[in-house]
Simulated scan of single mutants.
Amino acid sequence: MGFREKVNKYFNNHSETKENHWDKDLQTHYFKTTKDRAFDFVTDYFKRKPGCEIIATSLPHGEISLNYKGKRKAFVIVTIIMVKPFRTAIDFSVTTEGAFFDLGYSHKLIPKLYEELKKEMTLLDK
């Protein structure tokens, strides 16, 4: 992690996952499931999670948007894409409300959400 990435990690209010992210925790995670099952599981997970309010869902686009209320309020978009049979990618985009930076909160929230998903779904290697 270079100086620019370290500064960006703590002095930013937005983090998102992508295929080749410099931080391994923020790289796209793949699960052994179908898009529909993953979509249903993630939707149910956030409906049950205290402090989460689902705003909109779009199964054809594979997107779920929600408000997350933890230590800080955040707007989360979950994108679910089936890349091969039983190989589904789940990506997160997290933007915190309020100040210009969140001291790494959005960066730390994504691995926390992935850990919760790994408890119920089978994670695949890249």
Rank of each mutant, 00 (worst) to 15 (best):
A74P: 13
M82G: 04
K9R: 15
S65C: 10
T95L: 11
Q27D: 03
F75K: 15
K49N: 08
Y45E: 09
F86H: 13
D125N: 09
D91N: 10
A99Y: 15
F101V: 06
L66M: 06
E115M: 10
N20Q: 10
T88I: 02
L117C: 05
S15C: 08
W22E: 14
S93N: 12
H107V: 01
V83Y: 14
K47W: 06
V83F: 15
G2C: 09
H21R: 11
F86G: 09
T34E: 02
H107Y: 08
F100G: 11
H29T: 07
H29E: 06
P111V: 01
V42W: 00
T88N: 02
D25P: 07
T79M: 10
F92H: 04
K71A: 14
F92C: 01
F92Q: 01
H14V: 11
F100D: 08
D44P: 04
G62M: 02
K49S: 10
V78Q: 07
T96V: 06
T88P: 03
G2P: 06
I64F: 11
G62A: 09
E63D: 11
G70Q: 01
K118Y: 12
S58Q: 04
E120K: 07
G51E: 03
T57S: 15
S93H: 05
H21K: 09
K108I: 03
K24D: 09
H61R: 14
E120Y: 06
F39N: 01
F31S: 02
L26C: 04
S58N: 11
D91C: 11
I81H: 12
T43A: 12
H21I: 11
